[in-house]
Design a protein around this nucleic acid. Structure first.
Lengths: 185, 185
DNA sequence: ATGACTGTACTGATCGTTCGGTATAATGTC
DNA sequence: GACATTATACCGAACGATCAGTACAGTCAT
């Protein structure tokens, strides 16, 4: 929303790591202070809105990353299968091969759900839209493409949950590997 | 573990509702006190181990429910497709058609992950085993059946996340409806 | 010397937990 | 049947710790 200071971006990676692993309620300011190496005063200097401000900043950065690194890739050259595979690779790396949770999912649990649901919904919708566009471009009907894109997000989110719960990153890697063919089937 | 008092079971439903929606870190004793109508001190009378004790009690009850209501159903009569459909119906109802999160997934986020991961893993493994058993019994090869049962849990967990995030229970209902054929394909 | 940044100290609120005590009902003793 | 004892269920108040957030004086680079 508000133009993020360049300095703010410095602290996004540790913040992302915290929020995706512990969720909104599980992250305390002392944890944040420890992870960023910043005192509380400094945190409130960079993020006057407190914890919510930090989440929004991370969410904005994540949004830009999703657009630039995952979705724009879908509009490059190559067949649908190749493009989806490329996106899968980026996604797989972003989630550390399934070892790290999705922040969007983490935020939908706990008391902060309502506050961030609009932005989360917007990101998920755009993500599904980009996948569906690839499929329709490959000749698939609009409704089927939308259904398949929904299945894609379900597979990604579910595989993240299961890989983390079972402590087996192979579950996520296998799912991401099969995903492109699964979508173009 | 320890034989639960009958009285303890009285407070399981509100506790389950809290933990699945807010996760371990998001549930405070005052929230629990309000939800159960019990004073904080009374809570420690029934659950001497505090919050952890409550989670374990709920997890035990959930384990019994899973076995009795969902998994034992898989061993009844009828074809594989019919049996899986019946399980799907029970699951769908248990999750309020996708409106309520899975407590197993909720517990795998936050600071309490390590404490409850063994029991969560055990339940998920048993769940997958029961589904795989139905599939092998229907003539499917052992490795394929295991892979499919994994896909089933991924679909359920992913659909729960997406349905909740998008605020659209149809996502979950559709996934659960397609699941049996998807598994027997 | 001005503005960006940070450490220290502090606030009131809430956290999980424990203490002291009360009401009720069951149990044992005579 | 009367009375003391015990167990169960509950509560208000308070514990020390930590929570999110603020005030302010200092430090630093420019």
């Amino acid at each position: 929303m508000a133009k993020p200071t360049a300095a703010k971006q410095t602290y996004v990676p540790p913040l992302l790591d915290l929020f995706r692993q512990y969720g909104y309620d599980g992250v305390s300011l002392s944890k944040i202070s420890q992870a960023t190496g910043l005192g509380k005063a400094s945190l409130y200097h960079h993020f006057p809105g407190g914890k919510d401000d930090m989440v929004i900043t991370v969410l904005d950065t994540l949004d830009q990353w999703l657009q630039a690194t995952a979705l724009d890739t879908l509009e490059s050259d190559g067949g649908a299968l190749a493009r989806l595979t490329r996106m899968g690779d980026r996604i797989c790396e972003a989630y550390s091969h399934g070892q790290k949770p999705c922040m969007l999912a983490s935020l939908m649990l706990g008391s902060a759900k309502d506050d961030f649901q609009p932005q989360v919904q917007s990101m998920l919708r755009r993500w599904m839209g980009a996948i569906a566009a690839v499929l329709t471009q490959a000749g698939m009907s609009e409704p089927l493409a939308q259904e398949r894109s929904e299945e894609a997000l379900i597979a990604i989110q579910g595989a993240l949950i299961m890989a983390r719960a079972m402590d087996d990153s192979a579950i996520f890697e296998r799912t991401m590997e099969h995903l492109p063919q699964q979508l173009c089937r």
